[in-house]
Design a protein around this nucleic acid. Sequence first.
DNA 1: CTGTTAGCGCCTTCAC
DNA 2: GTGAAGGCGCTAACAG
Lengths: 337, 337
Amino acid sequence: MAEAKKSTLVLVAERAGVSIASVSRVLNGLPASEQISAKVKAAAQELGYVADATARSLKVGRTEQIALAVADVGNPVYVAMMNEISRVVTDAGYRLVTSSTGNDAEDQIALLSSLNRGYADGMILSPLRVTEPLIAELRASRLPIVVIGSLPEGVELDSVRADSVAGMGLAIKHLAKQGRQRIAFVNGPVDTVPGAARLRGYVTAMDKRGLPMHGDLQVNADDFTFAAGLVAAEALLDQSAPDAIVCANDLLAVATMKVLARRGLSVPGDVALIGMDDTEIAELVTPSITSVNLGSVKRAREAAKLLIRRLADPDAPVKQVVIAPKLTIRESSVIPH
Amino acid sequence: MAEAKKSTLVLVAERAGVSIASVSRVLNGLPASEQISAKVKAAAQELGYVADATARSLKVGRTEQIALAVADVGNPVYVAMMNEISRVVTDAGYRLVTSSTGNDAEDQIALLSSLNRGYADGMILSPLRVTEPLIAELRASRLPIVVIGSLPEGVELDSVRADSVAGMGLAIKHLAKQGRQRIAFVNGPVDTVPGAARLRGYVTAMDKRGLPMHGDLQVNADDFTFAAGLVAAEALLDQSAPDAIVCANDLLAVATMKVLARRGLSVPGDVALIGMDDTEIAELVTPSITSVNLGSVKRAREAAKLLIRRLADPDAPVKQVVIAPKLTIRESSVIPH
DNA sequence: CTGTTAGCGCCTTCAC
DNA sequence: GTGAAGGCGCTAACAG
């Protein structure tokens, strides 16, 4: 049974009647005689010895920790990504240190420079907004960083991103096939990385299919949240009468669905609805919501693997991965016959 | 600008032309002359110096990290708790190390003993099942631990728990007031801490009000998840025709709502529905779901504060906090007139 | 007020 | 194969 007091290598060595070096070797699986090995293991067992993590870290220069910084923990897609990252890094023997920065770029910069204290061996960062100072800080970092999200041209960092444009294309194509004409778009803030990308996708896809794109078919929520979605959807339906609505994420889609219900509009009868991110909430609600799967889990897994690879091989070539989207069709976009 | 290379106290001292002790003092805000202070700060700035966290930890015996172990990260209530804990510990200057153990008691025990490596200064633990070996390990821990959830009598550990019995009482009372008679209960596994407590609450409350409690009004989902809830709700409605259903958490409630919709039963018209935990999903769906607020956020906050208090004062008396429940009434339980 | 010095607990060459 | 000793980077006594 473990003791309540802390025990060190020295104590174990005394108890076993050997040198601390031998104890270290045995416990790290280095060659040692049966005899010593047995004595050391017994002593360690009796004392409930476990090697001190901080001392080990200082000596070997690794903490076995990976830092994760995400902006909005209220969003289920980040939760899903976090879980996946947690799984991968844990399997690789790392602990995960999570910090939820605000949407604030300042916070992220502070976090990056604090990473240089070396409390973790590397970081996975998913910034909502990519500013110049942030990029400068990313470049200056002493430790490896993997970015989830788009990076400007010329920034040579490991990264993983979704293909929002293609994803939006899938959504619009699906709706057009169903004969929908007036396809509206509820976006989040356009000055964010995902907001900008999804707008680009909407414009591109609508344009390609020659669909009308009046300004009154577009609204931007102040945030990627349910509450902001309610406001935005009300505004949209006040100013136009779409027969389909694409939302920039599932929270906005759920909010839009609620507003449609309030107004007595049926889904998918009167209005077809599509969300993005394909999180669990899309299937919890009734009717379940068709959603563009932007590969959040894959992105998370890939990001974690990228970082682990870089930690193992600091000189590996920079890798920028793009994950292809898929459309998960549910009840909200197809009229059953 | 920060350099890409690591810099140490020694380097800063050389550059500033002073001793390393002076550098340490200045950077830690201890008294020093203006002159030296200025030189040190300049040198540190130029070299982009930040103190190494592992070395500091080894020296001072604190990591400034707090570990958090939760069982089921798929459940939104844990996400909410995690966010709150993250906020509190961050404000207090700690980093949060999260580990999602499986539902496995083994995992939790392994985690507890790994905590003795000293990678964190303490841990917040929310075990789904409290077994004997787990308690033994809790007692043996060298570092302070705060438990979220009920603990057996006589276990002297800081803890915070909900009052499920009172909470269930609120739900049943509310339903009875609305004239509901056949109140069913969709529980999770009864061999878990929350499952057992909520069953106790249901039995107590039904009994108190003299409401019928046939076995066919009760089902246990295999898990506190949406998928398990679908199965359980189907089973319930196959075997009985309740006019109200209480679910052991919001995920089970959402699943039950979906099954009710499938069967053409209206909420709250045909069946009133109440969830527990009062998470965001209860208000996302349509109709929104009345839910018993078991104070998850308060519990989380209290747990974090308790741990921080104990870290500051290891000899403080053990404190066991119980958070009172409230009922958040929404659309699913009241017929509008 | 400042510099020198001794560890924190561990890993890892080096001699033996 | 084993033990002795140095040092990772930092803080905190202790002298001066």
